[in-house]
């Protein structure tokens, strides 16, 4: 009798164990099915050639669905060593173009050299630092890597890590 019971217990546990292991593996597969597709992930990294940009010019590109402002600084714009990116001997201000207040998109005003947000009147200087209004902090800098005169967005290069270290 006792032998019979333990035999059945063993079969029950073996069956349950197999089912549980299968269940865990199936859950893993389901999690991966929900992951972003490879095409989506590779679109998360884009390369921008900075060499054709003129001084004082702002270009807006889309990266991961967010606007990115790239400004090639002219000589009369103050440098900001905590935020500027040096590539090919020139200084650039690169930032995610979303107001840090509520996520509206500020616009570049060339006459005053400011980014102004229409939603609640926030203002940022040419380096993306908040100077007026409700924004609580400067515009965020996206992870980047410098490759000669090219900028790769989405990858954390040594220059990006240095900037992050300076901020902290």
């Amino acid at each position: 009798m006792a032998v019979e019971t333990s035999r059945r217990d063993f079969i029950g546990m073996a069956f349950g164990g197999f089912a549980a292991a299968g269940g865990v593996i199936a859950l893993g597969a389901m999690k991966k099915t929900w992951d972003p597709l490879p095409s989506v992930q590779s679109a998360g990294f884009i390369t921008v050639d900075l060499s054709p940009m003129k001084e004082g010019e702002v270009q807006t590109i889309q990266w991961r669905g967010k606007p990115i402002f790239i400004l090639k600084k002219s000589a009369d714009m103050p440098k900001n060593e905590k935020r500027d990116i040096i590539a090919g001997g020139s200084s650039y201000a690169v930032m995610i173009g979303l107001c840090t207040h509520l996520g509206c998109i500020p616009t570049w005003t060339p006459t005053t050299k400011q980014f102004k947000c229409a939603c609640h009147g926030g203002e940022f200087d040419a380096s993306g630092v908040n100077t007026f209004g409700p924004p609580p902090r400067p515009m965020d800098i996206p992870p980047f890597k410098i490759d000669g005169a090219k900028l790769v967005l989405g990858e954390e290069g040594p220059e990006y890590k240095k900037l992050v270290a300076k901020k902290a």
């Binding site: 999690k31 929900w34 992951d35 972003p36 597709l37 989506v40 998360g44 991961r64 669905g65 967010k66």
Partner: peptide, 17 residues
């Protein structure tokens, strides 16, 4: 957030799921 959306932003993958 990216896993739930299936993309870095709310996009086609998000709508379909």
């Amino acid at each position: 957030v990216i896993w739930i959306r299936g993309d870095f932003l709310v996009a086609d993958a998000t709508l379909t799921r």
